[in-house]
Amino acid sequence: MQILLPLLVGAMVAVSIYLMLCRDLIRFILGLVLASNAVNLLILAAGRAVVLPPPLIDAGQRVPGQVVANALPQALILTAIVIGFALLAFVFVLFYRAYQALGTVDTEAMRAAEAESLEGNGEGGP
């Protein structure tokens, strides 16, 4: 596990960077999903992914009697997954709305906010 996980993380990051460098927003999202999962695995690996008994303390004692698994990395990952999920939901809606308004998902063609085509705005849209 200790060797497998870093290799997996490396492969996932490589693929996600390739996807995120695409001009296509859909591919960017897929790359983003991969990258955030890779980072979550990285946290798991950083917390030492080894098989240990669960962190439960026997009745009547104040400290565990043996070396137990560290639950904190999983708590961190859980938080990151929840936040990542919410962000992803927003990103999907935003990209869809942008596609509706701009008619493209090609980032090279998305120039509405750039200097040339920004017509004295401030007026609200529909």
């Binding site: 709305r97 920004l118 849209g125």
Partner: peptide
């Protein structure tokens, strides 16, 4: 993206990414 006009959505995509 509160006003949701074209410029804002485009800017929003870049900012978010």
């Amino acid at each position: 993206v509160l006003a949701q006009h074209r410029g804002q959505l485009d800017a929003g995509v870049k900012y978010v990414v």
